[in-house]
C-alpha cells in the first residue's frame, strides 16, 4: 500500500483533475444560465486541437492557449446560437458537437500534418510551463511535485467563479435566468443575452482545459484525447451540485480515482496475488454520479430552468 499512497499520487491527482475542473467550471456557467452543456467533451477536443496546432506553428504556448480559448468560445457560440436563438434541443445539439469534434480535428490534422488524427510533437520549451519553472532555484523534489501553471489558474478560477456567482450582480443575473427566467425578465434582465454569455464562457474555460491536455499534460494532440473527460466533468458538476468549490472537490475525487488506476497498474495485488482490476476503479466516478443523482447521498438539484429555451411572452 505504501507504494501507492505517495506524494506522487497527490500531484498526479492534481494534474489529472485540472482539465476536469476547467471543463466542469465551464459547464457550471452554461448550466447555471439554464443551458445544458453536454458538449464539454467536444469543447475540450476543440481546445486541445487548436492549442497544439497553433503552438506548433507559432512556437508559443501562450498564443496556443489564447487560440484554444477563442476556439472553445467560438464553438460554444455555435451551440448558443442553435440552442438559444433557434431553440434546438440542447442535448441533441451537444451530442452533434461531440461527434463533430471526433471528426473535425482528425480531418484537419490529416490535411495539415499528413497524419491520421494527431499533431506533431511540440518541443518541450514550447509547452505550457510548470510552476517550478518560475522558481529561482531547483529543488530536488521538483520532478515529482511539478504542477502546471494551468492547475494554479484553475484553482484561481474556482474562487473567482465563486465570487462572481454569489457576490456580483452578474452572478445573480446568471443564476436568476437559470432558475426563473420569467421573473428575471420581468426584473429587466436580458435572459437570452445572459445565456449567450454563460454558454460562451463555458467554451472558453473548456478551451483552456483542452489546451492543458495537449500542450500542458502532453506535447501533442492525439485523436479523441479527451477520452470521456468532458463527461466526467459533467458528472462532477452534478456531484458538486452546480457549485464552484464542491464541483472542484468532485473533480479532485474523480481525478484521484484516475490517478489511483494509473498508480495501481501492476503494483497492487489482491491477497491471492492477482492484480486488482483497474476497471472497477475506473467505474467509480460514474457509479457515484448515478447514486448521487438518484438522491442517495443528499439531493443534487439542477437549476430549475435547465434545458428549457426561453420564449418571451407576447
Amino acid at each position: 500500500m505504501r507504494q501507492i499512497f505517495t506524494l506522487q499520487l497527490l500531484f498526479s491527482t492534481i494534474r489529472l483533475s485540472t482539465p476536469l475542473v476547467l471543463a466542469a467550471l465551464g459547464g457550471l456557467y452554461s448550466e447555471r444560465s439554464g443551458v445544458i452543456n453536454i458538449a464539454l467533451e467536444g469543447l475540450l477536443l476543440a481546445g486541445a486541437f487548436t492549442a497544439a496546432s497553433v503552438t506548433y506553428y507559432a512556437h508559443s504556448p501562450w498564443v496556443g492557449l489564447g487560440s484554444a480559448i477563442i476556439a472553445g468560445a467560438a464553438v460554444a457560440a455555435i451551440i448558443a446560437v442553435a440552442c438559444i436563438r433557434y431553440k434546438a434541443d440542447q442535448v441533441v445539439t451537444g451530442t452533434g458537437i461531440n461527434i463533430l469534434f471526433i471528426g473535425l480535428p482528425a480531418v484537419l490534422s490529416g490535411a495539415l500534418f499528413l497524419s491520421s488524427g494527431s499533431t506533431p510533437q511540440i518541443p518541450r520549451e514550447n509547452l505550457l510551463p510548470v510552476l517550478s519553472h518560475f522558481l529561482p532555484f531547483m529543488p530536488a523534489w521538483r520532478i515529482f511535485t511539478d504542477v502546471s501553471i494551468i492547475s494554479l489558474l484553475a484553482l484561481v478560477i474556482v474562487f473567482v467563479t465563486r465570487y462572481v456567482l454569489y457576490r456580483t450582480p452578474f452572478g445573480l443575473r446568471l443564476r436568476a435566468v437559470g432558475e426563473n427566467p420569467e421573473a428575471a425578465d420581468a426584473a429587466g434582465v436580458a435572459v437570452n443575452r445572459m445565456r449567450y454569455v454563460g454558454v460562451i464562457l463555458s467554451g472558453a474555460l473548456a478551451g483552456i482545459g483542452g489546451a492543458y491536455l495537449s500542450i500542458g499534460q502532453s506535447s501533442l494532440f492525439t485523436r479523441n484525447m479527451a477520452a470521456g473527460r468532458g463527461f466526467i466533468a459533467l458528472a462532477a458538476l452534478i456531484f458538486g451540485k452546480w457549485r464552484p468549490v464542491q464541483t472542484m472537490l468532485a473533480c479532485l475525487l474523480f481525478g484521484f480515482a484516475d490517478a489511483l488506476t494509473i498508480q495501481m497498474q501492476g503494483v497492487a495485488k489482491l491477497p491471492s496475488g492477482e492484480d486488482i482490476p483497474v476497471q472497477f476503479i475506473q467505474m467509480i466516478p460514474y457509479v457515484v454520479t448515478i447514486v448521487v443523482l438518484a438522491g442517495f447521498i443528499g439531493q443534487s438539484r439542477a437549476p430549475k430552468a435547465l434545458g428549457t429555451p426561453y420564449q418571451k411572452e407576447k
Partner: peptide, 24 residues
Amino acid sequence: MHVSKDIVDMLQGIVIVFVAAEAI
C-alpha cells in the same frame, strides 16, 4: 490527397446540429 475518412464523423456531427436546429 488530403481528406481522411474522418470526414464522415464530421458530416454526421453537422447533420445532427442542423437537424436539431432546423428552425435555422
